[in-house]
Nucleic acid binder design. Structure first.
Length: 428
RNA sequence: GGAGAGGUGGCCGAGUGGUUGAAGGCGCAGCACUGGAAAUGCUGUAUAGGGGCAACUUUAUCGAGGGUUCGAAUCCCUCCCUCUCCGCCA
């Protein structure tokens, strides 16, 4: 949510900054609504002040022995009634304007950070660095894609999963299920070892939580909803973790709060028909280990570097080559002000694929969720950051493709052996 | 799911229509006392919005929403949540 004061005082700045995202908006009408709303509020509270004064006068008279049905009291009563009526009219108008303002403001994305590179689309994203050497097929060698490997080694069921649910679901089996579990534990241990607090949140979340982190109202069609309740399947642990501190004032000396949350994530993937239909890349349900920071505004810039580094550390520990790109203003998500994506190399596919997205949201989610910090006398909004550390299914895909051996087995990185119990998958 | 009890400030807790944003206590902060501390004393200590350069001022908020009233934490209605007992259950 953007600041209403900013809308009143400087809508040009908002238009200009959202213009960097490729949006063309004229906010003069919305600004007018905001100003009307403010004027109405002023009128209304002046009237209420008058009403309060009268109420106190009546109380004083009656306590002073005046008859409660005497002429003096009756006159004040009539006056009070008139004010009450006027107030209720103004209140109604004010509520209408407030709702309009809130709805329209809630549909606007965050302003991109000044640090974010300008650009129109994915094509304008900026590569920041690469790590490791992408594995390429040696001469005469054919590298399989992860779904081919998984099928060959019986790591998951795809056809049967359609029977259980529908397409874009998989059932991990045997060593595949074990590998997923190992990865979750490995990632959680890595992050908690750095001081992150582990969270296992509800994965059904209410509308207020989705609104607080920015998924509602604009992206309702992207989440699964439970028809009989005000509950949705969370698309990311970012949602419940943001709401962990919704409507709270956090003492400044407790910041930053750093959480690591494992959760299954559910996405409808509307509009992706035909894309990534095989394997673990794009599913309605997938596992993710999410990093999340609540921090002081003064430190969010460094925090963004740190949370990204913490995600990169997982890839490095798993010896998976990757590149780090910074999203341009045209490609940044709704709630984010600045985003780094980490893309892992998939040798079988011969391409880099997104495996983590690390964003700073500034005060955007904090304003929607009313999360403040208290430093001395006043309060101010905190900054929130999130980063995948990592998407587990895609990590498995990368491990399978990266570790494939001539004999058809998969060599796993040393760091995972204590978790998986073996350095190889698929040797009989 | 059935029956009962209850939701008040960071916490505990008083408050059943009148000047109550809310007694008292705890906690916290400042000051005094002290060589330093403890103890003690004094003062201060909610959030959000509006106006004002500021001092300050004003409105709202006692789970949420509506109603009665000149006036509601207090009365009425609806909803939500928590606790206890019973039932069911991983």
């Amino acid at each position: 949510m953007l600041d209403q004061r900013l809308l009143r005082d400087n809508p040009e700045l908002i238009s200009q900054q959202l213009g960097r995202r490729g949006m063309a908006l004229d906010l003069t009408k919305l600004q007018l609504i905001a100003k009307q709303e403010r004027d109405l509020q002023e009128q209304r509270s002046n009237l209420q002040a008058e009403g309060n004064r009268i109420g106190k006068e009546v109380g004083g008279l009656i306590q002073g022995g005046e008859a409660s049905n005497g002429p003096a009291v009756q006159g004040l009563r009539d006056q009070g009634n008139r004010i009450k009526q006027q107030v209720s009219v103004l209140e109604e108008e004010e509520k209408e304007l407030q709702a309009k303002l809130r709805d329209q403001l809630a549909a606007l994305p965050n302003l991109p950070s000044p640090d974010a590179p300008d650009g129109k689309s994915e094509a304008d994203n900026v590569e920041i660095k690469t790590w490791g050497s992408p594995r390429l097929a040696a001469s005469g060698e054919t590298l399989e894609e992860h779904w081919q490997i998984a099928e060959r080694l019986g790591l998951f069921e795809t056809e049967r999963s359609v029977r259980i649910a529908q397409s874009r679901f998989v059932t991990l089996m045997g060593q595949g299920a074990r590998l997923e579990r190992s990865l979750i534990n490995f990632m959680l241990d890595l992050h908690t070892g750095k001081g992150y607090r582990e969270v296992l949140p509800p994965i059904l979340v209410n509308s207020a939580s989705l609104t607080g982190s920015g998924q509602l109202p604009k992206f309702a069609e992207e989440s699964f909803r439970c028809a009989d309740d005000d509950l949705w399947l969370t698309p990311t642990a970012e949602v419940p973790v943001t709401s962990l501190h919704r409507d709270e004032v956090i003492p400044a000396d407790q910041l930053p709060l750093r959480y690591v949350a494992y959760s299954p994530c559910f996405r409808r993937e509307a509009g992706s028909y035909g894309r990534d239909t095989r394997g673990l890349i794009r599913l309605h349900q997938f596992n993710k280990v999410e990093l999340y920071w609540f921090c002081h505004p003064d430190h969010s810039r460094e925090a963004h570097q740190q949370i990204t580094a913490d995600a990169e550390a997982v890839l490095e520990a798993l010896e998976l080559p990757y590149r780090k790109i910074e999203l341009c203003t045209g490609d940044i998500g709704f709630s984010a002000a600045r985003t780094y994506d980490l893309e892992v190399w998939l040798p079988g596919a011969g391409a880099y694929r997104e495996i983590s997205s690390c964003s700073t949201c500034g005060d955007f989610q904090a304003r929607r969720s009313a999360i403040r910090l208290k430093d001395g006398k006043g309060t101010q909004l905190v900054h929130t950051l999130n980063g995948s550390g990592l998407a587990v299914g895609r990590t498995m895909a990368a491990l399978l493709e990266t570790g494939q051996q001539a004999d058809g087995s998969i060599k796993l990185p040393a760091a995972l052996v204590p978790y998986f119990g073996s350095d190889t998958i698929g040797l009989a």
